[in-house]
Design a binder for these strands. Sequence first.
DNA 1: TTTTGATGTTTAAACGATTAAACTTATGTT
DNA 2: AACATAAGTTTAATCGTTTAAACATCAAAA
Lengths: 344, 344
Amino acid sequence: MKDKKISLKDIAQQAGVSTALVSYVLNGKEKESRVGKEIAAKIKEIAKELNYQPNHLAKSLRSGKTHTIGLIIADISNPFFANIARIVEDEAKKHNYTVIIGSSDEKAANSWDLINVMINRQVDGFIIVSAENSEEQVQYLKERNLPFVLLDRHFPELHTDYVSINNNKAAYDAGTHLIKNGYKSIGLLAYKSNLFHMQERIRGYQQALKENDIKPQKSWLKEVNFINIEKEVRASIDQMIAGKNPVDAMIFATYSLAVNGLKYLNELNLKVPTDIGIVSFGQGDTFDLYYCPITYLHQPMNDLGRTAVEFLVKKLQNPEEGIKQVLMEAKLMTRESSQVKESS
Amino acid sequence: MKDKKISLKDIAQQAGVSTALVSYVLNGKEKESRVGKEIAAKIKEIAKELNYQPNHLAKSLRSGKTHTIGLIIADISNPFFANIARIVEDEAKKHNYTVIIGSSDEKAANSWDLINVMINRQVDGFIIVSAENSEEQVQYLKERNLPFVLLDRHFPELHTDYVSINNNKAAYDAGTHLIKNGYKSIGLLAYKSNLFHMQERIRGYQQALKENDIKPQKSWLKEVNFINIEKEVRASIDQMIAGKNPVDAMIFATYSLAVNGLKYLNELNLKVPTDIGIVSFGQGDTFDLYYCPITYLHQPMNDLGRTAVEFLVKKLQNPEEGIKQVLMEAKLMTRESSQVKESS
DNA sequence: TTTTGATGTTTAAACGATTAAACTTATGTT
DNA sequence: AACATAAGTTTAATCGTTTAAACATCAAAA
């Protein structure tokens, strides 16, 4: 059983025919190529017997198609993206595509590298959760005519395929919900980023305040850097709860901000929701297991991932396919962390 | 800027030489192959100018090496494995390898599929977190002489490379720790599995009881099926806390068991650690954010992943390399969930 | 009997890179 | 002048597959 690699040639030899016939038969082109019936049967049998596995490299080299999708996500350690990755993988498999995953860790330079690695691994197309300041990369893919779909984040000034969330609406909903439940001083902890989705969250939050005639305070809106998030989250929360206009509720703009924030609130011995109401973007076990279940915005990950793959596969099958853009709605899952505030 | 794919031939044409020279120069073999200095310079310049990216498929087809590692993990939705995957990826990148990841979801059939897919994608070698009953797959790889390293789980009866944890010791430590802290009736919630690592955890737990003259009760040791874990965890816990010998502490044999278990304890309104002490395998944010920080066994993920890659790469570079096996120690991280029991 | 058509099979180029071997000049040695 | 050696470059095979085109064989039609 020390089988060496079996190639078309081996089968051809055993069957006493040329490799062309074997190729035809094994690709189900017996009809079009009028291969003799007995020969065809014989070839199939030998192939099975030798457990022939075609060499993908050779196939791809010939066809120019690798049936591989390059998935670049912003941060693999974030369960939201990890899940998305998994969904994309599963969905791609259904369409007979393999996925190569890479994480840019939110750095544009890294995603450049990944794009190049993937290009010369000959991926057929890309699905990308863009890092900040990576517009030129998207532009580059467009110019080289490489098929891609942006996922979860997009650049409104670029005309590309994308599948994302209506973040403005989501943040607006979060804010409105808290206000309705009696919270009056609502903070937002976001990432410092010029990415559109983050800006939209900020705008949605601001609009919720405005429409309810709440005067926004500078100390309520904090933006922290992705790197050394831990320290900055602490500092930001300190500022939000200090001063003469402390917040009585806060919105976390991402899951990782929430995890860090909740840890710190624990340390400060602030009780949710009595001391401070909470709504967060993202989702994870943590939100269920926190002593007080956290209200969060449920992003339809399955739909996001599935649709992104679908768009890309369609485009791969027919490059003339037009540009497709979707904004999906996040759904507010109301839990105890934002329950109606007892009038104090 | 609508550059089509650039090949060696294109460069050769521009430079007015044969592809051979271009290949030599671009692979740094100018010296051995005595390429003219000016020509070499010219070739390099043209290559840069055209932004030449070698075609990996062609390279691999020729060399028989893809510089790709196939990583098969048991369950990508488990953060422990997701993290391991990430570490393996990073480490592989350092050695200039790309990683293809697949999740078997703990099913042997799936991992067979993955192995086949990866084989005909011509991976150079495998790193595998084995699913139950996949011994024959490991055997198969051995027979076909395909390089691989088992990670986190291994089969003691098979003579293979592996990097795992000393699970016996870890479970023993967990049990002993609880006993020392005054708990008397200690349960273990494990997976129903004949995988060695799980059996070892059970044995370690049992030995801890035995050495402390605690008579093990049948209702204390529960094994649940991976599929519909949620229901079975509930049922198991119900049984553990019922009867005339209810547990006053329990050990979760994996992270996912812990997440499900803790959720249920919440629902039951059982307080940790007063009503029930907890120690768990695995790690994750949840353990920090639970109202009572959870004592857990810290598995050296970085070392595990790094070492697995290292073993594999060594073997790829020198197939004669001998079999390497390592058992690493898990470290008990003591937190409040297992603190000294107040005498009641 | 030649032609036409259908049927079945092989040949050979192509995909892009690597590399041993062959070839061509030029230079130095006797 | 004759030859050996060095320096620089090209040729061609190879990896495993696909596929258009060429080729061969035979039966039926003209």
